[in-house]
């Protein structure tokens, strides 16, 4: 590095200008690429993200279908196998886990100091956070399609065009759950506390929803649980995906998912705002003071 100066000498400091739209894209691309490379470098993450829903599909659904009969409810026009019923819920589950996982990686990044590198970028902070969110969603969409491909061979099939039509539904649901994860990541102070998120966020959201059983069944069993289910935004994500499989838009679900996404994202951006943010309470952002 002694002769480093020679090289550096040809590089006078650059003047600051505003960023061009192309540079915004360069930034987004870089964040997407890093998320993807990190995902590839963690093979166990890929495997577990596939195994989890497949266990539900192969084992739980196979056993449970004898117990629970699903009557004809929209969007289904005939009786469907229980496996078919829970597939949209399992897509939602992948997005839910993935959203929490990327927030886990944000907490990890913060502990390791990587978060600083993102946050000291001169791009607007909201843009950095939205890019980070999009990167997480992109990776989780791939997981969903990998799962659906395997399910297809297990004879769990939807109309072919349904696989294309669910893309926007998956995207918005992924965005909502990713934004939830991002908000949570700003609240969780340490990695150890993250186990709590699994118990207090993922499981309640998943079970108290229409992912595993139709809501009319829940209503029969417990009116209180039914109320919880219809207050749970995850229910709407699942229904949005379910209807999209059959080429239908569930408008209520779409509205709820979009509204909740905006609220959570706004909260997350606020939480990462240096002036008002919750991060100021943390003494440690990857170094001692």
């Amino acid at each position: 590095m002694t002769d480093a100066a020679g090289t550096f000498a040809g590089s006078p400091p650059e003047r600051s200008r505003g960023f061009t739209p192309v540079q915004y894209l360069v930034c987004l691309k870089g964040i997407l690429l890093r998320e993807w490379l990190r995902y590839l470098s963690q093979k166990e993450r890929f495997v577990s993200s596939l195994v989890r829903p497949l266990l539900w599909l192969f084992i739980f659904a196979a056993g449970f279908r004898q117990v629970l009969g699903v009557s004809i409810i929209p969007p289904y026009e005939t009786y469907v196998l229980y496996e078919v019923y829970i597939t949209p819920g399992l897509c939602g589950m992948i997005l839910l886990f993935s959203g929490m996982q990327s927030s886990l990686s944000m907490v990890y990044d913060r502990e390791m100091g990587n978060m600083r590198i993102l946050l000291v970028s001169p791009f607007p902070r909201w843009y950095l956070l939205v890019s980070k969110l999009l990167a997480g969603v992109a990776v989780s969409l791939l997981q969903v399609y990998a799962f659906l491909a395997i399910a297809w061979f297990w004879d769990v099939k939807a109309p072919l065009e349904g696989y294309l039509l669910i893309l926007p539904a998956l995207f918005f649901s992924g965005l909502m759950l990713g934004a939830l994860g991002m908000l949570l990541s700003s609240l969780v102070k340490q990695l150890e506390n993250f186990a709590g998120i699994m118990n207090f966020v993922i499981f309640p959201m998943y079970f108290a929803s229409s992912a595993l059983y139709p809501l009319w069944r829940v209503q029969e069993a417990s009116p209180l649980l039914y109320k919880i289910c219809i207050l749970n935004p995850f229910t709407y994500a699942v229904e949005l995906i379910r209807f999209a499989f059959y080429g239908r838009i569930e408008w209520t679900s779409l509205a709820v998912v979009l509204a909740v996404t905006l609220a959570l994202l706004g909260g997350a951006i606020l939480a990462y705002n240096p002036a008002r943010g919750l991060t100021v309470r943390k003494q440690d952002m990857g170094g001692s003071q």
């Binding site: 600051s16 890093r34 990190r38 590198i117």
Partner: peptide
């Protein structure tokens, strides 16, 4: 944009290559 920062904590991604780490940073500056 006029600031370069080397933090006390190590902030490179251990699982990525030197090039990947540096390219990531470059993209964060457009």
């Amino acid at each position: 944009r006029r600031l370069g920062i080397v933090f006390q904590a190590r902030t490179l991604d251990l699982d990525l290559s030197v090039r990947q780490n540096l390219l990531y940073h470059a993209s964060l500056h457009g």
